[in-house]
Amino acid sequence: MIKTKLRTELVSLVETTYGEAILTMQRGEEEKELVIAETGLSDVVYESAIDYYMYDLNWTEEQFDNYWENGGEDKEIDNYIDGTVDFYDDDSTWEEIA
């Protein structure tokens, strides 16, 4: 019997008025929600991005600010969401979501 591999797909991303970012993903017929930021998605992504660009790539604060303000924020948020969905595109990690 051939077994079809299920893929995890993004259904929605909602940011509440309290600053939570809730990601809804689906595998087959099953949907699960995951809080990926409790204080605002932009803040969470900003912290990881600034660490990477300024400390790992040795960018100046001016270089980073220019990148962030000219499309970098949206790019980094998209990458963060894509990475989260990819992480849960596996049977064992999918089952970890309550």
Rank of each mutant, 00 (worst) to 15 (best):
T84Q: 07
I50P: 07
M25S: 00
V44S: 08
M1E: 12
Q63L: 02
D78H: 06
G71F: 03
V45N: 03
G28C: 01
R27C: 07
D78N: 09
Y55L: 15
E30R: 08
T60G: 02
Y52I: 04
N66Q: 13
E20F: 07
T16E: 07
G71D: 03
L34G: 06
L34C: 01
A98I: 15
L41A: 01
Y53P: 07
T24H: 06
D65R: 10
Y18V: 14
F87T: 10
F64Y: 07
L6A: 14
Y18M: 11
G19K: 02
D82E: 10
E61A: 12
I22N: 00
T84M: 13
T60Q: 08
L13F: 05
I97G: 13
D91Q: 13
N66A: 13
Y52A: 04
D74R: 10
Q26E: 01
V44A: 13
E76C: 02
K32G: 07
V11F: 09
I77S: 09
T60C: 03
D90V: 03
A49R: 00
V45E: 09
E47C: 04
D51G: 13
E20C: 04
L34Y: 03
G71R: 02
D65K: 13
T17D: 11
L57Y: 01
L10E: 01
A98H: 13
W68F: 10
E33F: 11
Y53N: 00
L10V: 00
V35D: 07
G83L: 00
D65P: 05
T60V: 08
I97C: 02
F87I: 00
K5Q: 12
Y88H: 05
F64K: 01
E15D: 08
I36L: 01
A98V: 15
R7L: 11
I22A: 10
T4Y: 14
T24C: 12
V14M: 12
N70E: 02
D78L: 02
E96N: 13
Y55F: 14
E20I: 02
E95N: 11
L23N: 05
Y53C: 00
D82K: 06
Q63G: 12
F64Q: 01
W68K: 05
L10F: 09
I50Q: 11
D91N: 14
R27K: 12
K75H: 05
W59Q: 09
Y55R: 15
A49F: 12
V14T: 14
